[in-house]
Amino acid sequence: MSGKSKPKVAVWKFASCDGCQLSLLDCEDELLALTEEIEIANFPEASRAVVKGPYDLSLVEGSITTPDDLSRIQEIRRLSKTLVTIGACATAGGIQALRNFKDIHEFVSIVYASPEFISTLDQSTPISSHIKVDFELRGCPVSKAQLVEVISAYLNQRTPNTPAHSTCVECKRRGTVCVMVAKGTMCLGPVTHAGCDALCPTYNRGCYGCFGPQENPNTISLGDRLREQGADSAEVVRAFRSFNAGAEAFLKESERHEKENQKH
């Protein structure tokens, strides 16, 4: 990039906890190298300064939950050459997509003293439901190594290495003993997109599905197996309804078990 101006990179926030933006700040070792190569034009967690657009690369965190979000995301798309969504909120609607299963107006009336000041949508939706997204980076939060990889791939004009296979592949490469087979632990690893390097199973927990569905998720077969291993339908519903509750494969499977739960 020598001799040329550095690409302008902007980070945008929608409905989210800011954890994915913080992952970028957490890239301590690579952060200096990054700032050598890019100009940070907007990064709410790092600085209030905003450089005017257009932007070469926009990283978008969070889901669309308000009428204002709807117009703001269109404007950001208009100003961005390349737009990458980061994290479960931006790619699947996030934990706040749990509202999609209930009546949002009831929540608002219970939670807020003056509900008339609340302007919100009844669904939390991923960014890709509203605009064209060039690349989606999964995770709750995103893996900082993958975030650096995506930026690095962008700067070097190559495809990022973010495999869409199951988390099981990461467990097996690490040599982690399968918690589902060896202990009967409830684990979403077989249907979950890789990226975390099998963090939870390596520490003796089942996978929570933070990276959403893998490329070819057989959630029905896994759901049936979890039931055989002793989980009741309510537990399976909860397993599929977390950070990626709105991702289609997880959504359908949670609804299947919810129906079954209601029958009993």
Partner: peptide
């Protein structure tokens, strides 16, 4: 209908030998 295409069978198989290659660059290139 049952297969999870999770790849566990191939990973634990003592004869399965397939591998992929990943090319990575640092930020500066």
């Amino acid at each position: 209908e049952r297969c999870l295409s999770c790849a566990n069978c191939t990973m634990v198989c003592p004869t399965c030998f397939c591998s992929t290659v990943e090319d990575v660059t640092d930020v500066a290139g």
